[in-house]
Design a protein around this nucleic acid. Structure first.
Length: 396
DNA sequence: TAACCGTGGTC
DNA sequence: TGACCAAGGTT
């Protein structure tokens, strides 16, 4: 359970000057009046169905509103209620999420749906504590659903709220640290509107998305500028405090597009609990796997674009070992295909190859698939990039 | 705690 | 163009 910090504790521990009750009431009134006039008209704001609100909240995690809208509508067409979701076919479910990213979200959603059907008779739980127990639902999402769908006075502290509150109260803690969220929740327990908690949370999010933005921030146009300590004190350029992210690790890959005598391509299903889990790609081979095996130093950048006889041989041997295939490998790549993840930067060089015979059976996580069937496969955007880029590879 | 987990937009 | 950002959660 969250323990509510008193105003004195907020001051003593975090140097936060909480407002008087009168000022809090005036802030609530001012913010909600602005929200009633200016709130964005979004599909999930036209329903009180906790299932639909839940879908929207999961999709919106680390994802822009504009991107989510089409996925949201399509998802509800495919899985109109929680029973359909609980019984969903895994591949069909992943297909609906294709391109949206963070694919564990949809896997967790099915598990949560099964939890609701099993433990709550298919009725979505109506309080923070029970909602929070569902797979894939953390403190933010539990607070959002509890407040928006069930009018519980629970904070929903996301990146927007931390930025907004940092500026309103001149809060000197690093919002990039996981532990900081609790401080902002403590602030929210004081100021959240007891009668309209869901609207209050969403109003602060809208304020953060449209006015109290990370860049190009102009505090003078805010409807609550008089409440903004960092505006009044002209310290707003200092907030929020946010530490820098680590640099991404750069990894080089070869993608090998092997076609058999029927013209089908070799596809590989990725491991079920790693990056791009359960999705299909052409075989991807880390450059380091090749260079290390051969006792070579890492390849020079230019070596990756075009293979000399030695490197071609190393790659063909690796494919033979791992995929039980003798291949004829082209030496011209697609050029560099860059794909950036949250913590990685991949450079991929795609090569075409052909094969006539398989030595043994191909590995169990691999299949031969004709390109006319690619629409039935769940492809990450990375795979789509490689496929598109491969059309331009020169043969020979 | 910090690392892991996607993608597209923006300056 | 690289770095940051967008309604975070899990391990």
């Amino acid at each position: 359970m969250n323990k509510k910090l008193s105003k004195k504790e907020l001051k003593d521990k975090y140097n936060i000057n909480m407002w008087s009750e009168d000022k809090i009431a005036l802030f609530q009134d001012t913010l909600l009046k602005w929200y009633d006039l200016e709130k964005r008209d979004l599909p999930w704001r036209r329903t009180s169905d906790p299932y639909k609100i839940w879908i929207s909240e999961i999709m919106l995690q680390q994802t822009r509103v504009d991107t989510v809208i089409a996925y949201y509508k399509n998802f509800l067409t495919s899985f109109p209620d929680i029973n359909h979701l609980a019984e969903a076919d895994d591949d069909r479910l992943l297909k609906v999420w294709e391109g949206l990213g963070y694919y564990s979200r949809v896997r967790n959603m099915k598990e949560a749906a099964i939890q609701v059907v099993t433990h709550h008779d298919g009725i979505f739980p109506d309080n923070y504590e029970e909602i929070k127990k569902l797979k894939g639902i953390g403190p933010y999402t539990a607070g959002a659903i509890a407040s928006i769908a069930f009018q519980q006075a629970e904070p929903a502290v996301d990146g927007n709220l931390m930025r907004v509150l940092s500026r309103l109260f001149e809060i000197d803690i690093d919002i990039a640290k996981p532990a900081s969220r609790k401080v902002f929740e403590a602030v929210m327990y004081h100021i959240i509107d007891q009668n309209r908690p869901g609207d209050f949370n969403q109003a602060l999010m809208d304020l953060g998305a449209t006015i109290c933005t990370p860049k190009n921030y102009d505090p003078s146009i805010s409807p609550v500028k008089e409440f903004n300590a960092s505006y009044v004190n002209e310290t707003y350029l200092n907030y929020p405090i946010k530490s820098k992210k680590k640099k991404k690790k750069i990894v080089n890959y070869f993608a090998v597009l092997v076609q058999n005598d029927k013209g089908e391509y070799l596809l590989e299903k990725r491991h079920e609990d790693r990056l791009l889990a359960n999705m299909w790609t052409f075989p991807l081979i880390e450059e380091e796997m090749i260079s290390r095996d051969s006792g070579w130093k890492s390849f020079e950048d230019t070596d990756l674009y075009e293979l000399n006889d030695l490197k071609k041989d190393l790659l063909m041997r690796y494919v033979k070992k791992k995929y039980s295939l003798n291949i004829n490998l082209g030496i011209h790549s697609s050029g560099k295909i860059s794909h950036v993840f949250t913590h990685l930067h991949w450079n991929i060089y795609a090569y075409r190859a052909s094969t006539r015979n398989s030595i043994e059976a191909i590995p169990s996580n691999c299949e031969w698939v004709h390109e006319t069937k690619f629409n039935d496969c769940v492809f990450p955007v990375l795979q789509q990039k490689i496929w598109k880029s491969s059309q331009e590879i020169t043969l020979l």
